[in-house]
């Protein structure tokens, strides 16, 4: 009970922000919360947000862990393109669904292993180490698809992009399941604490007996696996692997989701649930802009303005100032303390 309360208090700002953004969209587009059933699956704008947000949500899971170790993974967008290309190439070669998925996911894990080795063993700064795969990865994906969009018609693989189970779109189920699984693994064991320890002080945690090298590699491999899942979903969604565009710039959205979720880029404490809500906030903004009917020239400006407002409201300085103006001085100080923590 207290654990649930603690989680709720941690994600309260993100939930309020999400509610505010959704309320804003409902003002612009009255039928926003209407959900009906079409073709045996839930259908509506709110469902679209959950569904379209799947790639960024999945990337954000891995990115949260990487950022908690004071790292960053710029390669996730390119890894999406690679694993999507691998999945498309494998399924068109006729090796069947299970080997195809296995191959695509193993590719993602291998990409993560490469990043992890560069960071943990060679000691290259994460932003530089993952930049290498970010640039080269798209080229690798293009080599696999030979520069064209590699299309496929395998019902089983397409199911992961546009299928539904119990009326809920598959991508939504996948990111929810992945988020739950990773949260349980890191929070029901000491893993989460160890990851935070590495992020706070690598040297101290090593001296305290944490095998930081193995843990760092594992974290980057998790990020690669999440990116591979996102890549398979993105390819299955359009029944084809588009090496040029799959996951393009999504690494930035994933980092933004983590930041909006309140995890510091300086490493340490993290919350996967908050990052997932952050991903939904970003997707809600995207979908809201599309529904609003503004000319496309305004898209990026509106998005930037909304994100700016969210980040300003979350900034410690603004929140302590707001708290300062409240009458109850004692509660203000208590709030300020929780913010600083």
């Amino acid at each position: 009970m207290t654990a649930a309360k603690a989680i709720l208090r941690r994600v309260a700002p993100q939930l309020l922000t999400l509610a505010a953004v959704l309320g804003l969209i409902a003002l612009v587009h009255p039928g926003f919360f209407d959900v009906s059933i079409a073709n045996g699956r839930l259908y509506g704008s709110a469902i679209d947000i959950l569904n379209r947000g799947a790639p960024v949500a999945l990337l954000a899971i891995g990115m949260t862990l990487v950022i908690a170790t004071r790292g960053i993974d710029l390669s996730v967008g390119a890894v999406m393109a690679i694993s999507g290309a691998v999945a498309a190439a494998a399924i068109t070669s006729g090796i069947g669904l299970v080997p195809t998925l296995a191959l695509a996911l193993v590719t993602g894990i291998a990409c993560g292993l490469w990043n992890g080795l560069l960071v943990a063993v060679l000691g290259i700064q994460p932003i530089v180490a993952t930049l290498i795969l970010m640039v080269a990865g798209r080229g690798i994906a293009q080599l696999i698809t030979e520069g064209a969009i590699l299309t496929f018609n395998h019902k089983g693989l397409i199911f992961f992009g546009s299928g539904a189970f119990l009326g809920i779109p598959m991508p939504v189920l996948i990111w929810l399941a992945a988020g739950l699984l990773v949260t349980l693994v890191v929070r029901r064991s000491a893993l989460g604490m160890l990851i935070e320890a590495i992020g706070v002080n690598l040297r101290a945690s090593t001296l305290a007996g944490i095998n930081a090298r193995v843990l760092l590699i594992a974290v980057y491999m998790t990020s690669g696996l999440c990116a591979a899942l996102a890549g398979v979903i993105a390819a299955a969604d359009i029944k084809g692997a588009d090496a040029n565009n799959a996951g393009l710039w999504l690494e930035l959205d994933a980092i933004l989701a983590v930041v909006v979720g309140g995890t510091s880029l300086l490493g340490g404490r993290f919350s996967i649930i908050a990052s997932l809500i952050g991903a939904m906030i970003i997707q809600a903004v995207n979908t809201g802009i599309l529904l609003s009917g503004f000319p496309p020239e305004f898209n990026l400006i509106i998005k930037a303005a909304i994100i700016l407002v969210i980040l300003v409201l979350q900034s410690p300085t603004v929140r302590t100032t707001l708290a300062f103006f409240r009458r109850d001085k004692a509660s203000a100080e208590a709030k300020a303390e929780t913010v600083i923590q």
Partner: peptide, 19 residues
């Protein structure tokens, strides 16, 4: 804008249909 890509074309069309 659908950025000339399939993914964005699909996403934007979904919002057109709802709107």
């Amino acid at each position: 804008t659908g950025d000339f890509t399939r993914t964005k074309g699909k996403e934007v069309m979904e919002s057109f249909l709802k709107a």
